[in-house]
Amino acid sequence: MRGQGPSVDLSLRARIRAGDPEAFAELFSAHAQALYGHAARLTGDRGAAEDAVSLTFLEAWRLRDRLRPEPPDPYDGDGLRPWLYGIATNVLRNHRRAARRHSAALARIPDRRTDLETVPDFADEVVGRLADSERLAAARTALRRLRRGEREVFALCVWSGLSYSAAADALGVPASTVRSRLARARQRLRRLAEAELRKSPGRPPAAGQEPGGRSERSGRNRRSADEPHRA
């Protein structure tokens, strides 16, 4: 039985703000898997996604003072999910800055995937995962047709299942902006699908699988021309 001391009923949020390491362990266990999925879908790259997870929690630790004392929407859970997705969004937008800030910490992680990716040691594993990776890459290529703001909203709301208000909180924009970006994304994707249908009659509009041409692949690698220098 615990007493009535003030620390007893401290919420996870309060413990995070207070810098309680155990709270970060809990936070990690609760959200790392979902954040990994989000990062992998946005980057199409599992190694980068692992790093993004580590960087997100390192940034969360660094920025714990900035977590507001009260959840933004008491009816939408503890509000820590949008906070973490907001940090992840910044990490993914400007990976280089975050990676530089925590470069030593990243270097301490054993067997980082970004280090292993070029090593063909895990033949069986690689074969098993190839289909998954191709799916991920195809989705990522198709996602590229959207503007960055639309991509983020699409990944957060559609793929990761955040509510409008949670996505708004994560991105630091009004919920109306989330709604309108999603509407623009829908319009754009529909127009593209229709255009494809017209180009190749008889083929189903397999959204994104073969984007009606080579424009997405003309580069030396899968990075599209509009972002040769993403940070």
Binding site: G37, S54, A105, I109, P110, D132, A142, L143, R186, L189
Partner: peptide, 22 residues
């Protein structure tokens, strides 16, 4: 409207390693 990206999974090994590292 987009091809399904699937549900990429972070293995439990990897997850606990990253957690310990954190």
């Amino acid at each position: 409207l987009l091809p399904s990206p699937g549900e990429p999974v972070l293995s439990s090994d990897r997850q606990s390693l990253l957690r310990e590292q954190l």
